Computed example of a mutant assay.
Amino acid sequence: MTGKGRRTAEKTVITPPTRGGARTERGSLRIAYALIAPGAAYLVVIFLSIILLLLSYSFRTEQTSRLVAPFDTGTWSDALADSYNLGVLWTTLRVGAVVTVLTVALAYPIAWCLLRVRRWWVTGLLVFVIFSPILVSVVVRSYGWMLLLGRGGLLNDALGGWLYHEPGVILALVHVELPFAVFPLLASVRNLPPGVLEAAADLGASPVRRLRTVLLPLTAPGIVASAQLVFALTVSAFATPSLLGGGRVTVLAQSVYQNIQQLRWPLAAAQALLLLAIALLVLSLFNRLSRIVDVRQRTTEGGRAQ
């Protein structure tokens, strides 16, 4: 280093942030909070009002839309103890779990291929095939599956017994939810450390062991986020189970609609709250699992760094 450069480096002083800068930052945050507060308060008030209204309807048995009615817990007993309603609840959870597992299992290799394929036209074709269905209505896609699985359809001979049965509903829901499962996995696969799989291969790990001990643990947050999103969308699905189920496969969202049509307001309100409670419970469990995965990853990275 020359004498002039040495003198310049010696004169360079890192100045701490001034109080004026901190005040400016706090002022910007206050402005942002002030802009967000009206919209957030509006959404909170509307959401709480709807929840309270549903609660008021669920604790009654009188078939009326009046806000004031005798308090009764018989509707909740019917929603939680009746064999038909319990069957609807079990079908909703079973379909949600199966669709989540199948969708994430299909989305994972798709996300991997989208980031690893070298030819641009192959990547473009995969992106078009996977994400273009989002631009089409769910009702249209469901009718398309009805044509494929119905009489004269391309899949009628192989899967002829699936239309108006649970396997057909699951197949259509996997197709509907697949793009939403790929998004979180793409971000997780993209953040993989470069050369980690090659290093594992150099150390003698087989492809299965690389998948089990390296790839899956590093992309676990994306898997959890993908499963969380797919399950939430599946348990609240209405159009696809209604069309593909043909009245033989009934889920909670469909049952709520049917009860509203029959003016069974209390039971519809109780089932709507039950669906919301299930979704929130499962999402909270996924959040807890995501935190556990993050802690384990940080612990592992800290141990490797030491």
Rank of each mutant, 00 (worst) to 15 (best):
T91S: 12
T103L: 07
A111T: 10
V139L: 15
R141T: 14
I134G: 06
W76A: 10
F131I: 02
V139G: 12
I110Y: 07
D82N: 11
L148D: 08
V129K: 00
L102W: 03
M146S: 15
R141Y: 14
G96F: 02
W145D: 09
R141K: 15
A107S: 12
L115S: 04
V104H: 01
V99T: 15
L147Q: 14
V88S: 01
R119F: 11
L135N: 13
V169P: 04
Y143P: 10
V104D: 00
T75Q: 06
W76P: 08
D157Y: 05
G96D: 02
L171P: 02
A172E: 10
V88K: 03
G161D: 13
R116S: 15
T100F: 03
G144C: 12
R94C: 02
I134W: 07
V99I: 12
L147R: 15
L102C: 10
A79F: 01
G161E: 10
V139N: 11
L155E: 02
V139A: 14
P133M: 07
A79Y: 01
T100C: 04
F128L: 09
V117T: 15
G161Q: 10
R118C: 11
T100Y: 03
V101T: 07
N85I: 00
V139Y: 15
Y84I: 06
T100W: 02
R151V: 13
V98D: 05
L154N: 08
L89A: 13
V104C: 03
W121S: 10
L89M: 13
Y84V: 07
R118Q: 15
V176Q: 11
N156K: 02
V122K: 02
V122S: 03
V88N: 02
L114W: 00
D157I: 10
V98W: 05
V176F: 09
L89T: 15
E177V: 09
V140P: 12
I130M: 00
L148A: 14
R141E: 14
T123C: 03
G153W: 05
F131Y: 06
F128W: 06
L155M: 06
L93V: 15
E177Y: 09
L163R: 07
I110C: 06
W121P: 08
I130H: 00
L149D: 03
